[in-house]
């Protein structure tokens, strides 16, 4: 464990908690893409299948349980509990254009042609593009609530910190994983536009609004 990975995990956890609290407290999922949350639930499910078979540490297991449980809770709130507030008209990104190519790619490019490894690879590829429906929705509505932009910032920063974690581990622990690194780079690049807007607008107290 190194500081970058730890801060990355904390940032990821706080993003998940921010979103859960936003929906639960405001009893509304306005502005939130249910499709992205569905993709995250798939990402965690396909990545943590070894949750019960491969114990690494209490921290690792408990974080995985929290991630999986909270992602399902978020999907449940959006599509069931508060579905009346779900803005389906603006959440129109075609997720099959994300799921199918990443699934095919995970069969073609992976470290080991075994079910668990292919599912892990699929989850890595899918995670790198899972935020697209949410970013697409923000661009369609032209704006995002401030709390939603904090959620997106924390979520984007987590994988950026993981990039530093991989540099650290390459340097000091003598290994790297090209699949995770390339997917992490793609994921971080997708946030660049949002990071720019967040830093130039939200941090100055303005509302996040995209040029429609």
């Amino acid at each position: 464990m190194n500081i970058f990975r730890f801060l990355g995990d904390i940032s990821h956890l706080s993003a998940i908690i921010i979103l859960l609290l936003k929906i639960w407290k405001s009893r509304s999922c306005a502005g939130i893409s249910g499709k992205s949350q569905l993709l995250f639930a798939i990402v965690f499910t396909t990545r943590y299948l070894d949750l019960f078979t491969n114990f690494i540490s209490f921290y690792n297991t408990s974080m995985k349980v929290v991630y999986v449980a909270s992602s399902y809770a978020t999907v449940w709130m959006i599509y069931s509990k508060f579905k009346a507030t779900y803005d389906g008209n603006h959440d129109t990104f075609r997720v099959e254009f994300l799921i199918v190519p990443t699934a095919i790619l995970s069969f073609l490019v992976n470290h080991d042609f075994t079910p668990l490894e292919i599912l892990w690879t699929f989850s890595i590829y899918l995670e790198s593009v899972a935020i697209l429906p949410q970013l697409f929705m923000v661009s369609k509505t032209g704006e995002a609530e401030t709390i939603t932009s904090h959620y997106l910032f924390a979520l984007g920063i987590y994988r950026t910190l993981y990039l530093f974690n991989w540099i650290w581990r390459y340097q000091f622990e003598e290994f790297f994983d090209l699949i995770a690194i390339v997917a992490g780079l793609v994921q971080t690049v997708l946030y660049c536009d949002f990071f720019y807007l967040y830093i130039t607008k939200v941090l100055k107290g303005k509302k996040l609004s995209l040029p429609a």
Binding site: K64, H111, F175, L178, I179
Partner: peptide
């Protein structure tokens, strides 16, 4: 450099 043995990451 050994590759891909960081299944200890989330």
């Amino acid at each position: 450099k050994r590759e891909n043995c960081h299944k200890d990451e989330l």
